[in-house]
Nucleic acid binder design. Structure first.
Lengths: 179, 179
DNA sequence: GGACGATCATTGCGCAGGCAACTACTGTCG
DNA sequence: CGACAGTAGTTGCCTGCGCAATGATCGTCC
């Protein structure tokens, strides 16, 4: 943040650079994402002992039957690959927030299941998180704007990830979370 | 993507889980971001030899006077820290796309400057990138929706990162890019 | 029943990036 | 001038993650 404005009046030395409106919109989108992620991460770290990753995993688990999920399902619900998820769950297990459970019907699969400590953590973190979200979004937007934001985001998501859209539509409630 | 719907009708075992609309909106936002990033990255890798990071750096450079920028300014314009940027520029330099230039007035600073090869690369990549953006956004949204999307994104960005907002407003053209 | 392709999870390897420590240099103040 | 605080950039160390390979298991088809 030293002197960003140095580039403020950068004379476009290449003609092709002149104002692509979409580039600006997407740039704002990216900046908004970065800012939001940073803010959420910061608040989460401060008030609960959670990282964004761990928060998301715990949240997915607490929403699931028996507070557990197969590794592969968990991976499908996050941005992580199977290998990334294995290690993320390793860390959560090391911290005592989840345990791995074997599956009797299919001995290849293993479940990640919340421990009581994990349930406590997510129970603490979730309200903080939601309050933080409310603070940000209800401060910046009217109710109308919020619903059109949701609509636009859904459309964009559906365009970019038809699979998630289809998975979401039927039950209309696997309600995506966040990263 | 195996059977995500497993969680589709997850009976919320904790009452507090019932529908936080904001959580859904933010979740969609995060999913849209992930999808967009993946799509852009994919297209960029396919048609130019560029990663999202390198593309952004090259784009910042080509927009700047003399096609060069001080390391710290470049860092301020990206999501990278100074150290991350040092290494990113190392990679670009290794690939011959940028060179480091010393600064006569202040011998602490070094510039990252585009080489002709770097200019070629960004000149190739930018139109591809913009076309891809157009394909996605103009396919999914009307012109009105696009402008309200930009407005909403700008408001969110400004809320989350007042510094960027201030840097942006006066000259109203350091036009944020993307990550 | 046994072989085979598919699926689930894990692990080795390599890269990317943040933090903190470090060097080099600048500008200021006594 | 000399000390010193602040700034620019780099580097060591560590973490986190994706890809590809692996081991275990399942389902199917002959």
């Amino acid at each position: 943040m030293t002197h960003v404005d140095a580039s403020a009046e950068a004379p476009p030395s290449t003609p092709a650079l002149a104002s692509y409106p979409l580039l600006t919109t997407v740039g704002l989108f990216m900046e908004a994402h970065a800012g939001l992620t940073a803010s959420l991460e910061h608040r989460l770290a401060e008030h609960c002992g959670a990282t964004g990753q761990s928060f998301e995993i715990l949240l997915r688990l607490v929403r699931s039957p028996d507070h557990r999920l197969r590794m592969s399902d968990l991976a499908a619900q996050t941005t992580l690959t199977a290998s990334g998820l294995t290690r993320a769950v390793d860390r959560l297990a090391r911290d005592g927030l989840v345990v791995r459970q074997a599956c009797a019907e299919d001995r290849r699969v293993s479940y990640a299941a919340l421990t009581p400590a994990g349930e406590d953590q997510i129970a603490t973190a979730l309200p903080v998180h939601v309050a933080h979200l409310a603070e940000i979004f209800e401060g910046a937007f009217t109710a109308d704007e919020l619903s059109s934001l949701e609509c636009l985001m859904r459309r964009l998501r559906d365009t970019l990830n038809p699979a998630a859209a289809r998975a979401s539509a039927p039950a209309d409630r696997p309600a995506p979370l966040e990263g």
